[in-house]
């Protein structure tokens, strides 16, 4: 029996995972969640910003990794628009501008935010390091126009914004190493406050920066999005995703435990 278990066809595991994903998607189940410190710190920081403050939201992920950062972007944009905090969108990823622009437009429309007054999207410029350092000196020197071709000088909300000195926070929604680049160059050199919303793959790398206050706060994967949605009292994609993910995690934990038990029993028998 244990020999069979050790040589199980991987496709059976795929079917099990598919079943565990499909059932909670069809029949949503709401599991209890508790807000952890990293997300609470980010929420509190944005919540305490006075109306008229400005944050930069960097959409540093791609279409292939948007599952986790997108719910975070929706939640934070909703929070900012409701608090009259202005948002400047940018991206360091060449294949992201269209998706980021559409997302900002969608959330703005839902919350009655006006383009150019409450938010703007500057788009993409190549060379991450040059963009991060250049914006510290002069944002208009890097982005002379927004994504739609309007000159920065003609955008009302950009009237009094020259560089990072007028920015209250940069939130990096990341699927790669961009958050570290923002910390190393924008925070260390220009004292810009940095927060992050990251995919599961890079969560572990973020905690040291949180401990040293180089990060104001951060949202770890689906969990972070769910926690932020809970703080806003507006369950969304993050909450749905995390509930489903919890069942898959239970299955994976069960399979890992079963595989280890079978391995050790088989090894003992061979001895």
């Amino acid at each position: 029996m244990f020999e069979k278990l050790m040589n199980i066809d991987r496709r059976i595991i795929f079917v099990l995972v598919a079943v565990v994903v499909i059932i909670p998607t069809l029949i949503p189940i709401r599991l209890p969640t508790r807000v952890a410190e990293p997300t609470q710190k980010l929420y509190d920081y944005i919540d305490e910003l006075p109306p008229g403050s400005t944050i930069i939201m960097a959409f540093d992920y791609g279409p292939s990794s948007l599952a986790e950062p997108e719910p975070m972007a929706k939640a934070v944009l909703q929070h900012c628009f409701n608090k009259d905090v202005r948002v400047i969108g940018i991206t360091l990823y060449a294949n992201m501008p269209t998706l980021a622009d559409k997302l900002m437009q969608k959330i703005a429309t839902e919350n009655g935010a006006v383009y150019g007054e409450d938010y703007t999207f500057l788009g993409y410029r190549p060379g991450a390091l040059q963009v991060i350092l250049g914006m510290g000196t002069n944002i208009a020197g890097v982005f002379e126009t927004d994504y739609h071709g309007t000159a920065i000088a003609e955008i009302p909300m950009m009237e009094n914004i020259t560089n990072y000195d007028q920015i209250d926070l940069l939130l990096d929604l990341a699927a790669g190493s961009s958050t570290e680049a923002w910390i190393i160059y924008a925070n260390t050199r220009y004292n810009l406050k940095i927060a992050a919303g990251v995919t599961g793959v890079i969560i572990a790398q973020m905690y040291p920066y949180l401990q040293t206050n180089q990060l104001v706060g951060f949202m770890p994967g689906y969990l972070g999005a769910t926690e932020y949605e809970k703080l806003l009292n507006a369950p969304g994609d993050g909450t749905i995703g995390l509930n489903t993910a919890s069942f898959v995690h239970l299955l994976i934990i069960g399979l890992v435990a079963l595989g280890n038990i079978a391995f050790f029993i088989q090894r003992r028998r061979e001895e």
Binding site: Y222, A245, V248, H249
Partner: peptide
Amino acid sequence: VMGRVALLI
């Protein structure tokens, strides 16, 4: 693993 599961979901 959590990140990859999120993509599947």
